[in-house]
């Protein structure tokens, strides 16, 4: 198959989602409320960073300019990142972390399921591995959303606040530009319009069970996947890329 700019862009987006959320979630290492969750969050971060390595390696090969996973991860600036804004938002508290993981992992499960049939066979192979991991992530976060939302007055209030804050960022999941149209037309990935209803059908019942109120849609839209990020990504990158920028080409 011929490589198109849309194809490279699409695989980069998937890799950046995994990398940035993996990096963000890893901030919990040593800080989670209980030891078991500390380990769970670190393990899920590792899964995501592993997925990011495969995806960015693939994106680099598609691009054909000799950039490997490390160059793509450590030597790009904010405007070259294509992750969803949701992935870069600060953790704030355990409730917001779990709600974010639940909203995102639920999307990933549906997306990887569809990418099993991608016309890009390498992407389909990555999807087959990632799907199994995403299912555990979605279950883990889904459990916690119910436990926290239908928990104490404090946990309910914090989880509802987290959902109210994060919900507007989920509109970006399904935003489409010419890249998305080209991807759907080439059979590389699904059309977002088709995924939106499927995602809500999975997410809303769990939120209801958690006794949370699903916010109404607002006109606000974030566009990290098109390269327009929040102020939080730069801070994240400055930490993640510190070593490679201080000692360019460092290896160990």
């Amino acid at each position: 198959m011929t490589t198109t700019p849309a194809h490279i862009e699409y695989v980069t987006r998937l890799g950046d989602n995994a990398l940035i959320l993996g990096q963000r979630m890893s901030e919990w290492c040593g800080h989670a409320p209980v030891l078991e969750e500390d380990m769970a969050l670190a393990n899920m971060s590792l899964d995501l960073i592993g997925q990011a390595r495969m995806l960015l390696t693939h994106a680099g090969k598609l691009e054909g300019k000799g950039r490997d996973e490390d160059q793509l991860a450590f030597l790009r600036t904010e405007m070259h990142y294509r992750n969803l804004t949701l992935c870069e938002l600060p953790n704030v508290d355990f409730g917001r972390t779990m709600v974010r993981n639940f909203l995102f992992a639920s999307l990933q499960v549906l997306l990887w399921e569809r990418l099993l049939a991608s016309s890009d066979t390498e992407l389909a192979a990555i999807a087959a591995k990632s799907l199994k991991e995403a299912r555990y992530h979605a279950q883990h976060a889904g459990d916690w959303v119910v436990r926290l939302g239908d928990g104490t007055a404090e946990s309910h209030a914090r989880t509802q606040a987290a959902l109210d804050y994060l919900w507007p960022y989920t509109a970006e999941f399904f935003a489409a530009n010419p890249t998305d149209e080209a991807i759907a037309a080439a059979g590389i990935g699904p059309a977002w319009s088709e995924l939106e209803a499927a995602w809500e059908a999975v997410v809303v019942p769990v939120l209801n069970e958690a006794t949370l109120t699903v916010p109404a849609r607002t006109p606000f839209k974030s566009y990290g996947k098109f390269g327009r990020h929040s102020e939080h990504l730069g801070h994240l990158l400055s930490e993640m890329q510190y070593l490679q920028r201080t000692y360019p080409g460092a290896q160990w």
């Binding site: 639940f102 992992a105 639920s106 499960v109 549906l110 199994k132 299912r135 555990y136 979605a138 279950q139 976060a141 889904g142 459990d143 959303v145 119910v146 436990r147 999975v202 997410v203 769990v206 069970e209």
Partner: peptide, 12 residues
């Protein structure tokens, strides 16, 4: 079986 399906909580 492995974890299957979407985001259904599997309870405790």
């Amino acid at each position: 079986d492995a974890a299957v399906g979407g985001a259904q909580p599997i309870r405790f």
